[in-house]
Simulated scan of single mutants.
Amino acid sequence: MRRYELVGRRDIRPVADAPVPTPGPLEVLVRVRACTVCNRSDLAYFHYYGLREHAATGCFGHEIAGEVEAIGEGVRRVAPGQRVFVRTPLTTGYAEYALAREISVGALPDSVPFEQGAILQLLPLAVHATRGIRLGDRVVIVGQGPVGQMALRIAVLRGAAEVVAVDLDDWRLARSTEAGADAVHRVDGSAGQLAEVGGRFDVAVDAVGTPTTLNACVGLVRQNGLVVLLGTHHVDTHVTLDLVTWERKGLRVHSSAEPLDAARAEALAVAERIAHRRPGILRLPDLLTHTYPLDDLPKAMEQLSASRALYPDAEPAPYQGPPPETLKVAIVP
């Protein structure tokens, strides 16, 4: 089969005759119909391979939609021929086939095209990240890239009384408004402008993953408020925090990661129900902005790499914000 492999820093290479994986017990082989590029992890692995230890251990190409080709012993939830999306695979989705654990595979509605279905990888992530939002909460989400946009949709669905979206880009914020944001704030990314968003939110979601945005969220929440770590700190892996402020405010914190299979299964089950019963609220067509064939994966990586988020917070960067008019990019084998 054809696939792309990340072999070095900014070095991805096509392989024409890679072996098709064989599913073991509780594993599923998926014929990949689309794989969206992760605007954070895939790009960080691509740019920091060899510079950050985790960049060589994560799965490059992990947002997949396709059809079940074969199942391993003990698989009960899916069957060959079924349309699925994959939360986190065992092998790259930049290929004609990918292997995944059964617990990471969700049923894809017939009404959702595969290119949009691959974006559903973000849905269980957003479900788990927003688990602390309660009915009537005031919520601010810093960062309106794809994962911040998905968190916005789920915050609205959870019954937040007010959802405020913050980003560097007016084009993205316009989509936030269409998805249900009650207010939007355009900032330049500086701590001063982020502080001007206001305060006393019940929940502040860092959907970027930089020292500046995390510390801004600390300032935006009320006493005993909740700070959610949704954006992954792939670039600045060490963040300095004022723990006296955390203690004085009595802040709570949780991440978006599902460290245990029980949490992973619960979030996936909720995501499946939303995708099948409330697909309109997800506005998946608004998130998919570009589609490339597998052979053009380098072009897609180049387009998405024009982003300020790929540079350390304290260092100058050639870009002031995200790639223009770009959210999710789908790769189709």
Rank of each mutant, 00 (worst) to 15 (best):
M1W: 05
R2Y: 02
R3V: 00
R3E: 07
R9C: 12
P14L: 14
A16M: 10
A18P: 09
P19G: 01
P19C: 04
L29D: 00
V32E: 00
T36L: 00
V37Y: 13
C38I: 11
S41P: 08
L43P: 02
A44D: 04
L51K: 15
F60E: 02
H62I: 04
E67W: 01
V68K: 01
A70M: 00
G72P: 02
A79M: 05
P89T: 07
Y94L: 04
A98E: 00
L99N: 02
A100Y: 00
I103K: 12
G106P: 03
P109S: 09
P109E: 04
S111L: 14
L120A: 09
L122R: 06
P124Q: 02
G136W: 13
G136H: 11
I141N: 04
I141A: 09
Q144R: 08
A151G: 05
L152S: 07
R153N: 00
I154L: 14
A155H: 02
V156P: 01
D170M: 10
L173V: 07
A174M: 02
R175V: 00
A181H: 10
D182M: 11
A183K: 14
R186Q: 13
D188H: 10
E196D: 15
V205Q: 07
D206Q: 09
D206A: 10
A207L: 10
A207F: 09
V208L: 11
P211M: 10
T213I: 05
L214N: 06
A216V: 09
C217A: 11
V221A: 01
Q223Y: 14
G225Q: 08
V227D: 01
T232M: 15
T232K: 14
W246V: 14
W246C: 11
K249V: 05
R252W: 08
H254V: 03
A262N: 11
A265E: 12
V270W: 11
E272I: 12
A275G: 06
R278W: 14
P279W: 03
G280C: 13
R283N: 13
R283Q: 15
P285V: 06
L288A: 11
T291G: 06
D296K: 13
L297D: 01
L297C: 05
P298L: 03
K299I: 06
L304N: 03
S307D: 15
D313I: 06
A317R: 12
P318R: 05
Q320D: 15
G321H: 01
P324G: 03
P324E: 07
L327G: 04
K328C: 07
I331N: 04
I331A: 12
P333L: 10
